[in-house]
Nucleic acid binder design. Structure first.
Length: 271
DNA sequence: ATGCGGACCTGTTAGC
DNA sequence: TGCTAACAGGTCCGCA
C-alpha cells in the first residue's frame, strides 16, 4: 500500500490523535517483522509522552523524550488509531496504547515493515543516514538529478527508485513520472539531458503532490469503523494499464519487467 | 563504486 | 468451480 503519499497521509491522520499523549502499554503480538521488533520498547515506552510524529522518506518517526520509534510500512503495512478495546484482527502485530484510551495499531500481512527503536539522532541512524532528498524539497531538482546521474549506467527508472538518490518514488510513481516527463524507463540515467531531468523532477513533484492531496481527502476518521487508510485513487496514466490506450496518443500502453518490478510506458510518448 | 539478484512474507488474482 | 501459479504499492544485503 504505502508509497510516500500514503505514509504522509497516515502521518497526518494519526498525529492529531496521539501526539502529546502518554504511552500506557505496548503490545507486541508478533515481533517477526522485517527485523525483530525490539522487546525493550515494552518497558522503555510506558510512561513516556509522544512529542511528535514526523516522516523521512517512507519512515515514520515517533519522537519520545528518550529516543525515537522508527516505523516503516513495507509493502502491506498500515497504521490506524483505534479504541484500545477494539479486538485485534489477524496481522495486527503491534499496539501502542495511550492514556487517552486510543491505540496506534500496526497491521501488516506480509511483514515487510519494521518497528525499530533508536536513541541516536534519527538522521544518523543506519537506515536513514544515506537517504536522498525529499522529492518536494527545493534541493531536489533537475540540476541535482542530472549531476548525480553522470556516468551512471542504470536505467532511469531504477535510478529514481533508488532511495539514495531521492526518497519516496515507488514503483507506481516511477512509471507515472517518467510518462509525464516523456522519458523511456529503460534509458540509461547517465544519458538523460539536463533539460529532461528538469521535466522529470517537476513530474515527480507534481505526481507526489497530487497524490498526497488525494490521500488527504479520502482519509477520514482513523479511529472509526473499518479504518481503511485512504488509499490513493489517482487517474493513473500508465501504471497497470498494459494494452489499454495511452491517454495522450491512443497507442497501447506497453509493459515490461525491470529489476523484478512491473513497468508501464508508452513507446510513442516516451523516448 | 556500481549493479544485480535474492531474500523476507501472505493475500489476491489470473489462468488453466 | 476449483486448484495452482504468478504477482503485489519496499528495500536491504551480499556478491561479482
Amino acid at each position: 500500500m504505502p508509497e510516500l503519499p500514503e505514509v504522509e497521509t497516515t502521518r497526518l491522520g494519526i498525529s492529531p490523535h496521539i501526539q502529546g499523549q502518554t504511552v500506557n502499554n505496548v503490545i507486541v503480538r508478533n515481533k517477526n517483522l522485517r527485523w525483530p521488533v525490539p522487546s525493550a520498547i515494552k518497558r522503555i515506552l510506558p510512561g513516556k509522552t509522544l512529542l511528535s510524529v514526523s516522516r523521512r522518506g517512507k519512515y515514520l518517526l515517533l519522537e519520545f523524550p528518550n529516543g525515537v520509534l522508527l516505523i516503516h510500512l513495507g509493502m502491506s503495512g498500515s497504521l490506524q488509531v483505534v479504541n484500545n478495546d477494539t479486538r485485534p484482527r489477524k496481522h495486527d502485530h503491534v499496539d501502542l496504547c495511550f492514556a487517552n484510551d486510543l491505540c496506534l495499531r500496526l497491521h501488516d500481512p506480509r511483514r515487510f515493515g519494521s518497528v525499530l527503536w533508536t536513541t541516536e539522532q534519527p538522521k544518523h541512524h543506519k537506515l536513514l543516514k544515506d537517504l536522498g532528498p525529499e522529492p518536494l524539497d527545493k534541493t531536489f531538482n533537475g540540476q541535482y538529478l542530472w549531476q548525480l546521474s553522470r556516468k551512471r549506467r542504470v536505467s532511469i527508472k531504477q535510478f529514481i527508485m533508488d532511495s539514495h538518490n531521492v526518497v519516496g518514488v515507488g514503483n507506481i510513481y516511477a512509471s507515472e513520472s517518467l510518462f509525464r516527463a516523456g522519458i523511456h524507463p529503460r534509458r540509461a540515467a547517465g544519458k538523460v539531458s539536463l533539460e529532461r531531468y528538469k521535466l522529470l523532477a517537476r513530474a515527480i513533484k507534481t505526481v507526489i503532490r497530487a497524490a498526497i492531496k488525494q490521500g488527504g481527502t479520502t482519509l477520514r476518521d482513523f479511529t472509526g469503523g473499518d479504518g481503511q487508510p485512504g488509499y490513493f485513487k489517482q487517474r493513473l496514466n500508465v501504471y497497470g494499464r498494459k494494452g489499454e490506450a495511452c491517454r495522450q496518443c491512443g497507442k497501447a500502453v506497453s509493459h515490461c519487467v525491470m529489476g523484478q518490478r512491473a513497468t508501464y510506458y508508452c513507446t510513442h510518448c516516451q523516448k
